[in-house]
Design a protein around this nucleic acid. Structure first.
Length: 114
DNA sequence: GACATGACGTAAT
DNA sequence: TATTACGCCATGT
């Protein structure tokens, strides 16, 4: 069975959005939720992405960050190993973190048209 | 159905 | 800028 296909439809809509985030750019959970038509379901984007651990998929989950302020994003994964993995993946595609473990959304934020 | 949980976000302090 | 408080809502129990 396909581990992704069998997830709830809401989650699939999140995955569709996340797949559109280009290499080297990042989005926030709230942004993904908004684009998926669920303005106040940012938390659930995290749920959906967490469910991908250890599965075969093509979802660039590392490009989704939590809001750390008006212009910054940061890792929200609770598991330290997962957090380190996310940072490593992002740095490998050119996304740099500042001294406070934050990413500038001005610089790396994904700004989709429509 | 009630209740707790959580990879969130915003406003208030 | 940092911390706290609270709203939100799909899932799992």
């Amino acid at each position: 069975m396909n581990p992704v296909r069998d997830y709830p439809e809401v989650w699939l809509s999140f995955y569709r959005i996340v797949r559109r985030i280009p290499r080297g750019r990042v989005a926030t959970y709230g942004q993904v939720a908004l684009l998926a038509g669920k303005p106040r379901s940012g938390r659930h984007v995290g749920y959906a992405l967490r469910a991908l651990r250890g599965t075969k998929h093509r979802v660039p989950w590392q490009r989704v960050l939590g809001r750390r302020g008006a212009r910054h994003g940061g890792i929200s994964i609770l598991d330290p190993m997962g957090a380190a993995a996310q940072r490593a993946l992002l740095e490998r595609e050119g996304v740099l973190f500042d001294a406070k473990e934050r990413v500038s959304l001005e610089e790396y934020g994904w700004r989709p048209r429509r």
